[in-house]
Amino acid sequence: MKSYQLTIKVDDKQVVLERILQVTRYRGFLINGINAEVNTGTNIGTIELMVRSERPIELLVDQINKLIDIKEVKVDNNTTT
């Protein structure tokens, strides 16, 4: 199992968090932790998602990137547990 931290920039839409969580679960990633806040000035949300999986993180990054309201996905660290 590897753990990863993703930083995801999104348009501030109600459902965006639900979409990210759904994709994360469906693609086989477990969630270690989550942090989400919105910059009300820019209407851009920042979601920090800590996940773990046997699968390569690119699989999840590519799928999250396909969601319509996503601006950017970054993998911040890459630690084995």
Binding site: P56, E58, L59, D62, Q63, N65, K66
Partner: peptide, 8 residues
């Protein structure tokens, strides 16, 4: 056309 299909 879909990046997510590469190496899936």
């Amino acid at each position: 056309i879909d990046t997510a299909e590469i190496n899936k």
